[in-house]
Design a protein around this nucleic acid. Sequence first.
DNA 1: GCCACTTACTGGCTTAAGCCAGTTGGTTAA
DNA 2: TTAACCAACTGGCTTAAGCCAGTAAGTGGC
Lengths: 257, 257
Amino acid sequence: MSTQRELPPSRRIAETLRRAIADGTYQEGDKLPSERVLAATYNSARNTAREAINILATEGLVDVRHGSGAYVRRQVRMIRLGAERYSERTRRETGLSPFRAEALKQGKTVRVDVPDISRVIPPAIVAERLAVDPESKSVVQRVNHYYADDVPVQIGITYIPWEIAEGSVLASEAKTGTGSIYARFAELGHQITRVREEIAARMPRPEEAQILRTPPGVPVLDVVHTGIDQHGKPFEVTNFIMRSDLTGLDYSMAVED
Amino acid sequence: MSTQRELPPSRRIAETLRRAIADGTYQEGDKLPSERVLAATYNSARNTAREAINILATEGLVDVRHGSGAYVRRQVRMIRLGAERYSERTRRETGLSPFRAEALKQGKTVRVDVPDISRVIPPAIVAERLAVDPESKSVVQRVNHYYADDVPVQIGITYIPWEIAEGSVLASEAKTGTGSIYARFAELGHQITRVREEIAARMPRPEEAQILRTPPGVPVLDVVHTGIDQHGKPFEVTNFIMRSDLTGLDYSMAVED
DNA sequence: GCCACTTACTGGCTTAAGCCAGTTGGTTAA
DNA sequence: TTAACCAACTGGCTTAAGCCAGTAAGTGGC
């Protein structure tokens, strides 16, 4: 079936190392031979060995640490997201976000940092969806960082029109750090339903990769929600950037062999 | 704020080219200077210029064609997926899948190939969810390739227990190529509701990249649905692998500057 | 016992040169 | 006119050598 054409040296070394990792020759956390040693072993230039390791790093199989070595990455699959459809109902019944509900179900501790709450000029989509002025500082932005068992898993940015926020809706929750912003909305008489949801896969921006500690080559999920209140008026837009290697989806799913 | 440390040459060249693309010096479809020319222009080795182009290719900004050159990639944003929540209701009302509904709304033509229908050993998750034997060929697999205006956008794999399929449910639709498999289920008296949904972002496998024509560095969305019938019994598992650059999500969303 | 320093490793990135392979367009022979 | 060919490009990938920067462990002085 497959033509099995001769692999170029860098790919061949990468393939060999991949197998060695798969069959347990190198376990999670183990250090791979150094570039110079690999080059000598496979009778090739250091560049070539380096390229091989680069391929594995891009696949997220190994972590490369400058000055130290390349280590087999731990395959963390902690949070299983999106396990239930109709999460609006779930949210209303439990008062928990899908993330929080799932994390708690799995016995993970949850922590939410709120590194920034500020009045900003809205990104184009946000302005459009909330029907606010795209030129002035017409929205309040609240940034959340979510951790499960102290592992960063998700960044959330919630945008609310300034008139609605009145400087308090988002800020009032800041100190508690519970991040249960929907509960706060309810207290203030806003019953929010998420009516629109878009999702994409993309590579993280450098800042995001730093916060989420994603290895090179590992993409993130980028989800945008729009929430309307009980009068059908757009109330908030939330953008989540999630680590994709923590969602628990079994990648072998689509493998046919 | 940003330290702005001196960029190494390869990054510097990449950055320069990135800007040139952003400001329209190089338009969509334009050919970038060859590696050798770039190297001469920036007084560096060909390897360095090559690395710069590689960076842009990994970011999906350019397509590199062996023997021809590097071309500025067309930024296609055709299908906006997941525009509506509660797609179960939409499905029941319109009889269309979200993909099909959205594509039609945007005036795109839709084509579905069915390259494979076969009886297979189920992947682990499928066996678990459908409660079938994970060791024998207990499921029928139907592979769909979806095209919008002849651009490949999605791969779908539907799994149904062999006893239910009886060799006919999936096969009967094969020739028509409409891919409206839910309609066929309904005809046969199975009213299916999707109760579970998991999603991940990941890099495509080589075969997938080939089918979907994704450039290097562009991830795919990997979605798994489980459908139950009117008696609450798991009936089918569907796995979609989708191009993420066609979902229409504006990446500028989370950019703060 | 502790801390600072040294040293021998590690990866990061570059230059320079070369051969191979795919593409393209012009030229030549039928 | 057409088809085959060929030469001059293009990128793909490698070797070899070198310098820089980060890491970690050992060694010394205190």
